[in-house]
Simulated scan of single mutants.
Amino acid sequence: METKTYNELTLENYPHTLRTSKYCPKQLFYKGTLPTADKIGIAMVGTRRPSANAEELCRRLVFSLKGTNAIVVSGLAQGIDSYCHRTALDAGIPTIAVLAQGLDAKIEGERSILARRILEAGGALISEYEGDTPAYKGNFIARNRIISGFSQSTLVVQSRKKGGALLTAQFCLDDGKLLLACPGNFDSELYSGTNALLDNGRAKPVFIPESLRSVAGIPLIEGANIEDLNACGVELSSGAQKVFKRFNGFRKTFSELQQEFDFKAPELLAILTELEISGLVSSKDNFQFYFNGA
């Protein structure tokens, strides 16, 4: 009897984002190490034939996720997918590749090397297809719903007006999740898809690659904390603790903070001053406030 080289993932062990998706698959198989429950999946997808500067763009986007619990999810395709997987490996960020073929089917070319690196680094290969099932055309559409399902949010890096990345974007929206897109040259066909998502208000823009973490709502996991301050004899007011705990690791404008809380402007300014003195918040212009190294 032939021995399987992969494992089956039971429904109760699906991550919450996938288990609650309207597109939740009935079965899943995997190789490698599955992410722990505290990991935050972010799907990063795009065209197989990207621009000349796309690899650098992906590098900057992915590196913005360092110091968080993010895990990069993509489809192991050439182009944007591979750039994001590869950069995640270079940055020491876990990554998952969702395949449109069985896990025993041969992976061609450089993608085979990348798949092996993902496994060696403690990541995983995921598929809903058994054995050596080939990558039929329809499998790619089905694969995209799982990429979105594993993720809290989806970023379309580069896409033409038609393509698999836009299907992943639609799955993301259908599940009520956050959709992000990188804007680009309005004359470039390579950005026609992402620009359209932004123009019709379906996606939230990532104007600066290094701001991806903040825009996606993925907090830092390191840095100063209230407990350390208490140990040093510094006690924050209840208002300061409330604001810090809510936005630790994020960047917010004063107006965004006002919308979130019912503090009057002078009270909120006093809280921010208290947090700045404590080293938990910084601001260069008193407009944008960076919480704990955001």
Rank of each mutant, 00 (worst) to 15 (best):
F261I: 05
S282W: 09
K161R: 12
F207P: 00
Q259T: 15
R246E: 12
I218M: 07
D285S: 09
A265H: 15
P183M: 01
K161D: 13
S283W: 07
C182A: 05
I277V: 07
A181V: 01
L257N: 11
L220K: 13
S214V: 15
L167G: 03
E260I: 06
K162W: 14
V206Y: 02
L212C: 04
K252W: 12
S159A: 15
R213G: 02
G184F: 04
E276F: 07
G149C: 01
N225H: 08
Q259D: 15
T253S: 15
S151V: 03
V215P: 00
L272V: 05
Y191P: 00
D228L: 09
G201M: 15
F263M: 13
D285V: 08
Q158S: 05
K252G: 08
E235S: 09
E274M: 06
G249Y: 11
F254R: 15
R251L: 14
T168H: 02
T253D: 14
P209A: 04
G193K: 03
Q258S: 14
S211L: 07
A270H: 11
R213H: 00
V215S: 01
E210P: 01
A196I: 00
P266F: 10
E267C: 08
E274T: 09
S211P: 00
C182N: 08
V243Y: 09
F261E: 08
G249I: 12
N248I: 14
L212R: 02
V243H: 08
F150M: 15
A265E: 15
D187K: 09
E227G: 02
G233W: 04
G279C: 03
G249R: 15
G163M: 07
Q152K: 13
F250T: 12
L166Y: 04
L275T: 04
L155N: 02
G201N: 06
C172V: 03
L167S: 09
L167W: 06
L236M: 03
S211Q: 11
E276M: 09
F247T: 08
L166V: 01
S192K: 13
L268V: 07
A203R: 06
T273K: 09
L229K: 06
A203Y: 07
S255W: 15
F186C: 10
K284P: 02
E276T: 13
R202W: 15
P209R: 05
S151C: 02
L268D: 09
V281P: 05
N195I: 00
S237V: 04
S188C: 01
L220W: 12
L220F: 10
L268M: 10
L269R: 11
R246W: 08
